[in-house]
């Protein structure tokens, strides 16, 4: 059975750090598969108008398609060029929860994310997505 590594990306150029590390690790491991995951921030407890609700399914499809084409596809292309087996997943939710959920569903061995330097008030109060992921994850997390 191959080793599965999850890479959490957010479309920033610094994603490369995590991607490069995961690529190196996968070459060292040998029989390894990378799963690139992008999480669209979404809370089921937000407030919306009737019109937004009526169009929500359509918007969700559009958001997923956009993220797949703009964020996931270029990363997969790069990994493919380096002969690394990889697939992509776009999902909605809280970043930490969603990465953890995908990792469980995929039976992954490790989650690799890059460090963020977000210093907003929200982060100070509730902690960053990375910090939350480290606390909640049931499998090893590597923060680059």
């Amino acid at each position: 059975m191959s080793t599965k590594l999850i890479i959490g990306v957010d479309g920033e150029s610094s994603d490369n750090r995590a991607i490069e590390f995961a690529s190196k690790l996968s070459t060292q491991i040998g029989n390894c598969e990378l799963i690139v995951v992008y999480v669209i921030e979404w809370s089921p407890f937000s407030f919306q108008t009737n019109e937004e609700n009526a169009e929500r399914h359509k918007r969700r499809e559009e958001e997923t398609e956009l993220a797949t084409n703009r964020i996931i596809a270029p990363v997969l292309k790069k990994l493919e060029a380096a002969n690394i087996k990889a697939s992509g997943i776009v999902t909605h939710g809280n970043v930490a929860d969603a990465l953890n959920r995908v990792a469980k569903e995929q039976n992954a061995d490790q989650i690799i994310v890059r460090r963020t330097s977000d210093a907003s008030i929200k982060t100070r109060i509730f902690g960053s997505s990375v910090a939350n992921l480290v606390m909640e994850s049931t499998i090893p997390v590597t923060v680059i």
């Binding site: 407030f47 919306q48 609700n53 969700r60």
Partner: peptide
């Protein structure tokens, strides 16, 4: 959200439908 399928994340939740109707 105890009975909400995680695969449906990003769709209109029970809470959202209730909150919108309440408003």
């Amino acid at each position: 959200g105890d009975y909400s399928n995680p695969d449906d994340a990003g769709e209109v939740s029970h809470f959202q439908a209730l909150a919108t109707a309440l408003s």
